[in-house]
Each structure stands twice: as structure tokens, then as C-alpha cells.
């Protein structure tokens, strides 16, 4: 995320959460927070607890963020990728937008049907000797089972509303979204079968080596005539070490849903966007 994108991202975040923009210039954003965001972001739980106990409304603070590292301003803080403040904001956003039910905004005079889609966004964690995480966005049309990838990327320019547009009506899904969710999982399994899995073999080889080393080390010492107590201690140590090795080196893949939703979409928009993609 470059800093212009970050700037726009933050601006959108604070504005859509009802904060008042006091000042904006290149590389600087100055907001008056809402009480809710003050409580979440500003780290002053006692203030808010006392205010609530007294039955008073609190005065939310102002916050000035610098998205340009070269910029300076009074009482301002630099925000960048990796700063704790930004990660707090990311966390807030993720927690507050896990599930959506949204309708495409359609300007039409005639009756228009909207088709239901299940959109599932996922982080796929590959844990081996090292770790990496892929991001996937998969959409499934809940009438005919059509499946599309990179859904969020493709639909980023389409407008969706929390209320249905005039003249539009929703078609009922044939596929329940619970089974739709499952279908997307199956699709992911198929996908995972096709990608490079040399990391799994590497990890398993290392795991084997380290298990052997441990067995050798603890076995050698056990041969000497040890007292009962010491033997038990050694056994506990062995278990400890083996657990640690397994935690580091048993390969696994974990699918974590970032968020998901039911999106109602006109046939025309769907056709236009997926056609464009194929072209």
C-alpha cells in the first residue's frame, strides 16, 4: 500500500465512521473523532469509564495523522505500514465488517431481478519451515453454481447499497449459502492440489531430521544408569522439545475467512464484468 493509497484509505475509514475532517492537505489528515473511535483508538479507558459513571458525554479527541514521512506538524503522529495505530485500525475494520448483505445500486425504470451471490474472502495460511499467506476472493452464484475468482478485485468499481434499489427485486437462492460456503471450500481444495508443494516435502524432511536428533540425544543419556527422578525429568524435557519441533515443523494449511456476504447483483453487471475478464 503506497502512501497515497494509505491516505485515501484512512480518510475513507474516518469519514465513513462519522468523524469530522478538520483539515486535509498533502500527507496530513486532521480529524475530530467520534466517541466510539476515541474509545477504540486513543487508549484512555479510564476517561471513558468515569464519564459514563457520571452519566456525562465525553469530549472526543482530535487526531492528526501524517501519511508523508517527511511531513511534520504539531501533535501529529506518523502513520505508516507497520505502525501500531494502523494495525489497530485494520483490526477494527476487520472486526466490524465480517458479514454483509448488499444490493447492487441499479438505476432503472423497469422491473429488474437481482441474482444472489455468496462472496467468501479468505486468507490461506501455508505453515511449514516458514510461513506464507495467500489471499483469495471467491464468488458463487447461488442459482446456477457459477464460480468466479478475484471477485473483490473485479467488482471494486461497482456500487452496492444496504437497501435494494427501486424497481429491483431479489431472486431466491436455490443453493443454501451454507452449502455454497462448502462448495467454495471444495474449490479451494482442488486449487491447493494444483500448486507447488515442494515446501511440504522440505518441511517433512527437516522434521524427520530433528526428530531423529532428539531421539538420539535423549536416548543416549537414558542408557546411563539414571535415578528415577532424573529419568522422569529427562522424559519431560524430551516431550517439551518434541512438542516444540512439531509446532515448528508439522506442515499445515489453514483457511481463514476474512469476511463473507450475500451480494445481489444484476445479470447485466455480472455479464459485463466476467466477460471483460475473459476478453
Amino acid at each position: 500500500m503506497d502512501r497515497h493509497t494509505l491516505h485515501q484509505f484512512l480518510k475513507k475509514f474516518f469519514l465513513t465512521n462519522g468523524c469530522q475532517l478538520i483539515e486535509e492537505k498533502e500527507g496530513l489528515l486532521h480529524f475530530l473523532l467520534t466517541p466510539e473511535l476515541d474509545e477504540e483508538l486513543m487508549n484512555r479507558p479510564f476517561y471513558w469509564r468515569y464519564k459514563k459513571r457520571l452519566g456525562q458525554e465525553g469530549d472526543p479527541m482530535e487526531l492528526t495523522l501524517l501519511t508523508d514521512p517527511n511531513e511534520t506538524a504539531e501533535k501529529a503522529e506518523h502513520i505508516h505500514f507497520g505502525s501500531p495505530r494502523l494495525h489497530k485500525i485494520f483490526r477494527l475494520i476487520r472486526d466490524s465488517a465480517q458479514v454483509a448483505r448488499l444490493y447492487e445500486k441499479v438505476d432503472t425504470a423497469s422491473r429488474t431481478p437481482l441474482y444472489p451471490w455468496l462472496i467468501r474472502n479468505m486468507s490461506v495460511h501455508f505453515s511449514g519451515k516458514r510461513k506464507r499467506t495467500e489471499t483469495h476472493s471467491v464468488g458463487l452464484q447461488l442459482l446456477n453454481g457459477q464460480l468466479e475468482t478475484d471477485w473483490m478485485e473485479n467488482f471494486s468499481q461497482v456500487e452496492f447499497k444496504q437497501q435494494i434499489s427501486d424497481q429491483c427485486y431479489c431472486l431466491s437462492p436455490i443453493i443454501r449459502y451454507q452449502s455454497g460456503y462448502q462448495r467454495i471450500s471444495s474449490y479451494m481444495h482442488t486449487y491447493l492440489d494444483t500448486i507447488d508443494d515442494s515446501w511440504v516435502k522440505e518441511t517433512k524432511d527437516t522434521l524427520k531430521q530433528e526428530e531423529d536428533l532428539l531421539a538420539h540425544f535423549f536416548d543416549q543419556s537414558a542408557q546411563e544408569e539414571l535415578e528415577e527422578e532424573i529419568r522422569e525429568e529427562r522424559a519431560a524435557l524430551y516431550k517439551n522439545e518434541l512438542d516444540a519441533v512439531h509446532k515448528r515443523l508439522v506442515p499445515s494449511i489453514q483457511m481463514e475467512t476474512i469476511n463473507a456476504g450475500i451480494f445481489y447483483l444484476s445479470e447485466e453487471t455480472a455479464r459485463k464484468l466476467f466477460h471483460k475478464k475473459e476478453a
Binding site: M1, F9, K12, F13, T16, F81, H87, I89, F90, I93, R94, S96, A97, Q98, V99, A100, R101, L102, N121, S123, F126, G128, K129, R130, K131, R132, T133, E134, T135, S137, M152, S156, E159, F160, K161, Q162, Y177, W199, I258, N259, G261, I262
Partner: peptide, 29 residues
């Protein structure tokens, strides 16, 4: 969440949540 008839996340927030996750995911070993 969907059983309750209340309002769910807005499109902006849904998109931002996805972006936040995508930006923090590291796609290389």
C-alpha cells in the same frame, strides 16, 4: 448475523476489511 434482519456491513467497510487483510498477508516464504 444474516438471520437477524438488522443492517450488516456497508460495501465500503467490507472492501476495506478485505484490503486490510490482503495488505497484511505475506505471500512469500
Amino acid at each position: 448475523v444474516l438471520q437477524q434482519e438488522g443492517e450488516t456491513a456497508s460495501w465500503e467497510h467490507f472492501q476495506m476489511a478485505y484490503t486490510a487483510a490482503k495488505e497484511t498477508n505475506i505471500d512469500t516464504f
